[in-house]
Every structure is written in C-alpha cells, then in structure tokens.
Design a protein around this nucleic acid. Structure first.
Length: 558
RNA sequence: GUGCCCAUAGCUCAACCGGAUAGAGCACCAGCCUUCUAAGCUGGGGGUUACAGGUUCGAUUCCUGUUGGGCACACCA
C-alpha cells in the first residue's frame, strides 16, 4: 500500500509548500491542521488564510484561493473548498480512508506506535509511597495515571523506565518501628501510652505478629526474616519496612502495575550521594551559613525563600536527598524525567529545580517535568467514605480493587484530567449496566470477537478484502476514528494526558455500537461480508491496543 | 496573608495549545430484540461556558480582577 496514512502531517506539508509560494516572507508561520467538528466541513481544515490576512493585508478568501492554487497535487485529496470566513476544508478520497483497514490489520498490536520519542531515555517516577502502610486511593490514582502515561510514552517511541522511590529512613519510619514494637509487646492504640505520631491501623498488628512468628517476607527489592525479639529496634525497623513494601508490591501487582527500578532514600546516604551533593552546592557558591545552619540560596532560582540544607543539629533536611536523587537521575542519562505525584507535593517543584540549577552543571530550568494529580474522594451509597478496616484512617487501593475490580478501578482513576479533582463513585464503577464506560468499551470488543468467532474464517484472509465496499456513514465514521488513533497517542504523550486515550476509546466504541445496530456483518454477499469483517476486526485491534495502554483487559466474551 | 490547581446541561465529564451551530454519558420523555451479545441502538427537551472587564477577524480556551472549592506554605518527611 502506497497510501499516506498520517494525513495530518501530509496535508501540513502540502500547505507548507503552498505557503512558500504564496507568501515567502511568512514561511515561518505555524501551520495548523485540524479535524472539523462537522462532516460537512470536510475531513481536515486549515486556517492559514485567516492567519495570513493581516500580514498580507488581503482578504482571507483571496489568500485561500491563492493557497489552493499553489497546493501540490495529492492522490489522497478528493476536493478542497473555501468556507466561512476563510477556512480551507479538505476532503479525503474514499480509497485513502479505506486503506486504514489494511494498515491496522497489518500493523496489529503495533498500530499507533509512533516515533516521537525516537528511542530516547525517559523516566517516570510514580507512586513512591513511603513503606508505612497500605497504598491509599491517592496512590491508586498515581499508579493508574503514571502507568498509563508510561504505556503511552512507550507507544510514542520513548525508552521508558518506571521508577518507585521511597523513604526508608526518616522520622516516619521511626514511628512505624515504634508502633510495631508496641504491638509486639501487646500494647494497642487505645492505650494511653500510645505515641502521638504512632500508626493505629490494624495492619500494624499484622506486621508485629509476623515479626514475632519469625516469618520471611520478600518484596521486589528485598528479603527479610523476622527475629521475634521485641527489643531489637534495628531488626523491627528492617522487617516492618520489608513487610509493608511487600504488601504494596502485592497491591500494585493486583493493579497490574510493575516497576523497573526501586530507589531507596537510605542508599543516597550510604553511597555518599547526599554528601557529594552538599559539597557540590557549597562549591558552586550558592550556599551560606546562618544561625548554625547551612542554607541554599534557592531565591536566586525562583523560590520564595531560601532553604535549609543542614540543620543546626547537624542533620540534613529532606530537601537535600531530593536534590541528590534528581542529580542521580540526571547522571543516569534521562533526557526527560516526569514525576507523577499528588498535588499536595507541588511546593517541592520549585525547590528541586532550584537545587538542580544551583549545581551549575547545565540541567535545563524546567527539568524534571511534573504531573500532579488532584485529590480523590470516594463515594458509596451517595456518601463519602473516609476509612477502611485495615488502614483505619483512609480508603486503601486494595479496597477498591477488591470491590470493583482492577479494570474498572484503573479506568476510573486514569480517565480524568489529572488536574481536576476526582470523585470515585463505587456504585457506578461496580454497576454492570450502560452507566459504566469501562463495560461499554469492553462490550464493543467482546461483540466483535463474537462475530468473528461465529464467522470462523481465517483472519489473515481479511487483508485481501475489497475495502472499497466500505462506504456507509457508519463505516466512514469508524475509518476516520481509526485514522485518528496515532494522533491521539501523540497528543496524550505531548500533553502528558493519558485520559485522552480513555475518551477516544469511548468514541470508537460508540461508533462501533451504532454500526452494529444499523447493519449486519455476516451477510450472504461474500465480498461485502469480508469487507465488513475486516473493518470491525481492525476496530477491535485498535480497541485492544488502546485498552492495553490503559492497563484494562480486552475480553473476548462478556 | 502568599503561591499552585479547578469552576462548562440537574449530575459526572469532553472540547484536537484561539476557530465554524460548545459535545457525550447518567437522569427525564418517546421508540427498537423470532437475526452476529439490549452491558446495545434511534429520536426529543435541557447552556448567558461562575461573574465583570480586556486583547482580535474570532475567546470555554489567552490577560486582569471578583466569587466559590481544593492543596501547599518548618532548621518534619
């Protein structure tokens, strides 16, 4: 097939050539090709004539006329029209659209993979929960958004590393150790001696029990056996961290999320990276001593106040390992680093970037990137849920997975713009009716699978179908949507907005369901049958590819 | 008090970096299963895009202000 499949960039190139001829002085202008909302406005539209009206001091319609005259011929374009104030509307030939079926079936799972990232190294850090308890809903949103983002960026051609960073050394780990120790000694949170910052959830009792029973736990990145000695604080700390890391790992696995690298804060100290970062910052001349503390002049780099690096008691603030950690990421050669976190961490952005700038080693000002997701509230029976049995003070990710399943949980947590607050309605996510968008999409896929199975033929033979028979409005709508899919991947990757994939899939499923109700596929006419089956097989392929990006299954039956 | 995010149909959300008549689903009303899955489809009503200004051929989108909601503002992590 010699047809151009990326019509948008193809058309943009045609206009670039026309522009050089019509207005050589304005050749640097951005050429924007968009999909009109109305079918009567064509398949693609260009507003270039309107943009040129001012600099050329001519009417948009005259300019449009000239542009069209200068437009190189293309076998994929049926006709070009001027409309409205000066829009140039382009209509594709039917054959050009129909060719997408072959392209999708031929590329299979690879359809939608683009070369935006050109194989460059990129890292996404997400979840990064501290090992002090089970993952909560917010971590779940981070996991869903982060993992989907990784999938999208991978499809966009980046070499993606998934990383999980956790603090295994700070004050909260001390609280964890203390809480487990007290539980080992039979003291419960309702005892008056229970410390202020102690963890009260039931899971602490489980950790204590396992430790006293000398169980062995294995997390992705460590393995430890309980000593059974309630006075050995080092052993308890070690065991508790490993135990909770394992629990988080199991939650993540149940959520279909895997990491390539686990990074420990303690390693930054033990490997001398924190010390090294401090000496580099001191050597760079951006630090000063005041009130027995060492300060970094982050205000030189956009922060609203300077930050303490070394406290007067000699310890470092958390800010220092944060910078050390990102320096380490930089050295590992990631062209791009994206930190997916809860919005409550937004204040660290300026600080981390300022710290990296202060190193004076050529790290870009806006490195790393951040995707911050807003809060999640959980609703059940119309009321907000705030606690869970196991964790006590918050709703766990595990609760959601157990109650509504992995697919629906992932979909609901990833299908919203990260910037907006999210209401997770358990009743809606659980409902197996048409209220539920996950099933709507999966149902479309299952329906197609059933039709193909009923047909029973060899799928490869569909590549030979006569696609020119695909001519109805329903068929055209499906073709157009499949053509758009790589564009969706590109937008989602560029805007770091994985939810676009979810919305696209709803549209695709909707176009299919309408088609399904309007026409039969298994008809007597062999040629028509094969063409239609090829089309829906291609649609199923795109659905399956898109669902894979969301981490949601594409069932054959429902 | 300062900074960041958000505000679109009764509800939950879209709108392709400024485009043409702002779109879906739920809910409401009226229809469609002897046929490949009705977890579906078709049609209908429903909007001053929070409010007030500004920028221009053109604003839900960009700027300023106001109101309302969320988050963050340690020698804690």
């Amino acid at each position: 097939m010699s047809f151009v499949i990326n019509f948008k960039s193809h058309i943009a190139e045609l206009f670039a050539q026309a522009l050089r001829e019509v207005a050589p002085d304005a050749a640097q202008i951005d050429i924007l090709i968009e999909r009109p909302k109305q079918a009567s406005h064509g398949d693609y539209a260009c507003n270039l004539a309107m943009q040129l009206a001012k600099p050329l001091r001519k009417s948009p319609r005259d300019i449009a006329q000239a542009l069209i005259a200068a437009l190189p011929a293309s076998e994929v374009i049926e006709k070009v029209e001027i409309a409205g104030a000066g829009f140039i509307n382009l209509f594709l030939t039917k054959a050009a659209k129909q060719a997408i079926v072959h392209a999708v079936l031929h590329a299979g799972a690879g359809y939608g993979h683009i070369h935006l990232g050109a194989g460059r190294k990129l890292q996404v850090e997400f979840v990064s929960a501290n090992p002090t308890g089970p993952l909560h809903v917010g971590h779940g949103r981070g996991a869903a958004v982060g993992d989907c983002l990784c999938n999208v960026l991978h499809a966009a051609g980046w070499n993606v590393t998934r990383e999980f960073y956790y603090n295994d050394a700070g004050a909260q780990i001390e609280n964890l150790m203390r809480s487990v120790q007290l539980r080992c000694k039979g003291i419960t949170p309702d005892d008056p001696s229970w410390p202020e910052g102690g963890y009260r959830g039931d899971y602490i009792a489980d950790v204590a029990r396992a430790y006293m029973a000398m169980e062995t736990v294995e997390a992705d990145d460590q393995r430890t056996t309980g000593k059974g000695d309630a006075d050995d604080e080092v052993a308890i700390r070690h065991f508790a961290v490993a135990y909770l890391r394992r629990e988080q790992d199991l939650d993540l696995r149940a959520f279909n999320v895997e990491f390539d690298v686990f990074s420990l804060e303690s390693a930054l100290y033990s490997e001398g990276k924190v010390e090294e970062t401090v000496s580099r910052l001191v050597a760079s001349g951006h630090t000063y001593e005041q009130d027995d503390a060492l300060w970094l002049r982050t205000t030189d780099f956009g922060d609203d106040k300077d930050r303490v690096m070394r406290k007067s008691d000699g310890g470092y603030t958390y800010f220092v390992p944060d910078v050390a950690y990102h320096l380490d990421k930089w050295r590992r050669g990631f062209v791009r680093v994206i930190n997916e976190q809860g919005a409550d961490h937004h204040s660290t952005i300026t600080r981390v970037r300022a710290g990296l700038q202060a190193l004076d080693i050529g790290i870009p000002k806006d490195w790393p990137d951040y995707v911050l997701h807003q809060m999640v509230t959980v609703l059940k029976n119309g009321e907000e849920v705030k606690i869970s049995k196991r964790a006590g003070s918050y709703v766990t990710l595990r609760d959601l997975i157990d109650e509504v399943g992995c697919d629906a949980t992932r979909y609901f947590l990833a299908a919203r713009h990260p910037d907006s607050q999210l209401v997770f309605d358990i009743d809606l996510a659980k409902s197996k009716t048409n209220d539920n968008p996950v099933y709507y999409i999966q149902y479309a896929h299952a329906r197609i699978s059933t039709v193909l199975e009923t047909w029973g033929g060899e799928r490869l033979s569909l590549l030979q179908a006569d696609f020119s028979l695909l001519d109805s409005e329903y068929e055209t709508a499906l073709l157009q949507l499949m053509i758009d899919y790589p564009q969706v991947i590109e937008s989602a990757a560029q805007d770091l907005a994985p939810h676009l994939v979810a919305f696209y899939l709803k549209d695709l499923a909707s176009a299919f369901h309408s088609y399904y109700n309007a026409s039969r596929f298994l008809v007597d006419d062999e040629a028509v049958k094969c063409a239609r089956l090829a089309l829906i097989a291609a649609a199923a392929q795109v659905m399956s590819n898109g669902l894979a990006l969301l981490g949601v299954s594409a069932p054959e039956k429902m």
